[in-house]
């Protein structure tokens, strides 16, 4: 069991071990949905919520069901199923009780199902042997870190409408380069707090 305090894990997950900028997880929706600040905020919020909830559920499923039955090797399949089921459930509940929010989130909620950062957070939790509260802190931090990264990216891409990018670099290519510079700048936090 890891001894690091929940607070340190939370901060590290946002800055030094940002799930997007150091592990490069969840790149597809990061690149695809960072065109506008507003939509990126919506997606970021949804990711925070789903990431916290799925780490909690996956923690319970892994240590409550899989480990006692000796089925730890099934974690990948089970986690993916749990995430997909949870997102479906949330989608139905939101649609039933708050159609307004449902339409505001639109395509983003189903998109989260295939966001590898969500699965990544659950797997890191198991690999790093976090306790329950550490897992919650990590899930929340990783979600906020992902949201911060996509909102910053959306701001830069809005500003880049005035740029004159060479044709062969337009779109995904320049987005990858900007992501690289973002990651370089976040390297400045290296060593502040550390989780492996």
């Amino acid at each position: 069991m890891s001894e690091t305090s929940v607070w340190v894990i939370f901060i590290a997950a946002i800055f030094t071990n940002n799930i997007l900028l150091t592990n490069f997880l969840g790149m597809c929706s990061f690149i695809a949905c960072s065109g506008q600040i507003k939509t990126s905020l919506g997606l970021g919020t949804a990711v925070i919520f789903v990431m916290v909830m799925t780490t909690i559920i996956n923690y319970a499923v892994y240590y409550g069901v899989l480990v006692p039955l000796g089925l730890g090797h099934l974690q990948f399949i089970v986690f993916i199923a749990v995430i997909a089921a949870f997102v479906q459930l949330v989608e139905m509940i939101v649609e039933r009780f708050s159609p307004k929010l449902y339409f505001a989130l639109g395509i983003f909620l189903p998109l989260i199902t295939v966001n590898c950062a969500i699965l990544g957070a659950s797997l890191f939790m198991i690999i790093r042997e976090y306790s329950f509260f550490q897992s919650v802190g990590f899930g929340l931090g990783a979600g906020i870190g992902w949201a911060v990264a996509i909102v910053l990216m959306a701001g830069l891409r809005q500003k880049m409408r005035y740029s004159h990018v060479p044709q062969c670099f337009q779109g995904v290519a320049i987005a990858m380069i900007v992501t690289g510079v973002l990651a370089m700048a976040f390297m400045g936090f290296a060593g502040m707090v550390s989780i492996q």
Partner: peptide, 20 residues
């Protein structure tokens, strides 16, 4: 952090946050 000097990173982060 591990760095003794952080102005470069700080201003680059400032550039990143500026549009927001």
């Amino acid at each position: 952090t591990g760095y003794t000097e952080g102005v470069t990173f700080a201003i680059l982060l400032g550039n990143i946050i500026a549009p927001i």
